[in-house]
Structure formats: C-alpha cells, structure tokens
C-alpha cells in the first residue's frame, strides 16, 4: 500500500531543517521552487522576475533557468520548456529554526495590498490540513493580481505565515535584520505577540510573521495568459548555483 499523503507542515519542516544558507556569508543551501514555462516566453519571464524583484515582492533575486533536457532531482525539463528555479520562502523558516527560534508554519494564502501596505489575508489554507502546497492551488483560482501590485501598488499577492514564540522576539528581530544586504527579502509583516497578524489568529504568546510567496512572479506570468506549471518546494540548492536576475 502507498504511504499516506504527507501534510505540508511536515514537508516544510523537513526542508527547513536542511537549509544552511547564511545571510551574512551569502552562502549555503536554500529551498527552491521549480516552475516550467514555454521556451518562447523566457524573455517575458525574465522581465517579470526583474519587475517583481524591483517591486520587492519576490523572496530573492536569485534564479536559475534550466534548458530542456537538463535534469534536476531526477526530473528532466521537457522539450519546448524552460525550468525556472527560484527561492522558496521556506528558506526563511530554515533560518529561524537554525537560530533556535521555536517556529511553526501556519499556512499559505492571499494578502490584499492597499497602496503598498499589506491590509489583510483574504484567503488562507492551513498547512496541517493540506497535502498540497496552498500557493500551488491558489495561483489558479484567479484571485491574485500581482501585476497590479507591481504597477499600481494595490492588489492581491501570494503570501504565507508562520508563528514564533514571543520569548524569541529579539532573536527574530536579529534574523530579520541580518536579511538586509543578503539575497533574501520579502517580509510583509511582523505582528505583535498575541495579536492576529493580517487577520490570521496566532497561538497564545506567539507572534506572526508574514512573507511573500516565492511563486508571485509565476502568478504574474500566469495572469498575463502565459502557460506555466509550478512544483512548489521541490528541493534544496546551493545559492552558488543560482544567478541574480539583474545579470540577465
């Protein structure tokens, strides 16, 4: 018999535990998402990735484009397609865990942005109740407006939330500070202890941290009517194997 489907909170923690990325050294491994686009859309995708990096709604500027036939984790990129490796926000969870911060992934959803300010989650799927990545299914519900956020500053983004114990608040602050000048960004909101963060309830004595989803550029590509496939949380990769989008 096949093993039972694995719930996403387990998968995030398994991946997060293997993250070795150091924001100070800018070396180590991070969790990545793998997406596919059609070969002819490559230029378009590069433009979207640049725009989303500039608008501050991507987890990282680091990407890697894979030509057809290149194999990654036993998966060959199909003919006529380009594989896009981008940094997954679970990398942040890995950083928190490695600093000894008690952290629980809560869920993935859609955040409404109003004039560049995150207003509230309007949809949420809790990780311990799903075996499929929430952002992977939410991207196809026609609920995102990532392009509108990039252009006008208002719209809906993919985002996720985790919670940390308030005792670790200063440590959390240190980790988030260390991201400045690193390859990781995309923190949307850090909540007050015991207070719902962007409308999502946290456990007693915990505080919520909301980060943008790593697949927002892919959502933007999809919104423009281009074909894409997303396989969230695909594996781990050394950041040295990735290149900054601005170099394309």
């Amino acid at each position: 018999m096949m093993s039972p489907p694995k719930f996403i909170n387990n998968r995030i923690e398994e991946f997060a535990l293997q993250v070795t990325y150091s924001p100070e050294e800018r070396t180590g491994t991070c969790v990545y998402n793998l997406s596919l686009i059609r070969s002819e859309d490559l230029e378009f995708a590069i433009k979207i990735f640049k725009d989303s990096y500039r608008a501050g709604i991507s987890v990282s500027g680091l990407v890697r484009f894979l030509q057809p036939g290149v194999t990654i984790e036993d998966y060959p990129v199909p003919e006529g397609c380009i594989g896009i490796v981008s940094v997954c926000s679970s990398t942040l969870d890995g950083l928190l865990l490695r600093r000894g911060i008690p952290m629980k992934p809560i869920g993935g959803g859609i955040v409404e942005i109003d004039h560049r300010v995150p207003k509230r989650f309007i949809h949420m799927i809790l990780y311990e109740h799903t075996t499929i990545d929430p952002l992977q299914v939410l991207i196809s519900q026609e609920l995102t407006s990532v392009n509108a956020v990039m252009r006008q500053g208002s719209g809906n983004l993919l985002a996720n939330i985790r919670e940390c114990h308030m005792e670790a608040e200063s440590l959390v602050g240190e980790v988030l500070d260390s991201l400045t000048g690193s390859d990781l960004s995309g923190i949307l909101e850090v909540g007050m202890p015991n207070t719902p963060t962007l409308g999502v309830t946290v456990d007693p004595q915990f505080l919520g941290i909301v980060a943008v989803g790593g697949t927002n550029p892919m959502a933007a590509i999809r919104e423009e009517g281009r074909w894409e496939v997303i396989r969230a949380m695909k594996g781990l990769m050394d950041v040295g194997e990735m290149t900054h989008i601005n170099e394309y």
């Binding site: 869920g107 309007i122 799927i125 109740h129 799903t130």
Partner: peptide, 12 residues
C-alpha cells in the same frame, strides 16, 4: 489518495 485538503483548514 494523491492529495487531501481538510474542510476545517481552508477558506475555499
């Protein structure tokens, strides 16, 4: 079962 989503864990 390839995937499951709990009725008590989603807004959709």
């Amino acid at each position: 079962f390839l995937d499951l989503i709990g009725y008590r864990g989603t807004t959709i």
